[in-house]
């Protein structure tokens, strides 16, 4: 993908479990949003991941700040998929 961007996706809790890894590198087209990243990740990870992802409301953080799905990503960003927290 010429002119693409590389981002790192982080998985926690139940998403980490179904993904089978804590993080994954993903290459996207320039100008891609969090929503497009999620679609790409769902394709990469398969049905179990998609089922869990659809079951619970997921929040997104880019470089440790909460964002909406429409957020445009940049090369080198770290995107965390954050399931509902259960606190301390």
């Amino acid at each position: 993908m010429e002119g693409g961007i590389d981002v790192t996706v982080l998985f926690f809790a139940s998403l980490d479990e179904v993904a089978g890894c804590r993080e994954r590198a993903v290459r996207l087209e320039e100008g891609s949003t969090v929503r497009e990243l999620v679609a790409e990740v769902a394709t990469m990870m398969g049905e179990d991941f998609l089922r869990e992802f659809s079951r619970v409301p997921i929040q997104f953080a880019v470089n440790e700040a909460f964002v909406r799905e429409q957020q445009v990503l940049h090369d080198g960003d770290t995107v965390a998929l954050i399931p509902p927290v259960t606190g301390g």
């Binding site: 809790a13 479990e17 927290v85 259960t86 606190g87 301390g88």
Partner: peptide
């Protein structure tokens, strides 16, 4: 506030298996 806002996830395990808790 820790119970609802701390970015933590708990997974319980017991005799009936294990599960991620939900708020």
């Amino acid at each position: 506030l820790l119970k609802t806002e701390a970015i933590l996830w708990k997974k319980e395990s017991g005799v009936r298996g294990s599960r991620w808790l939900e708020p």
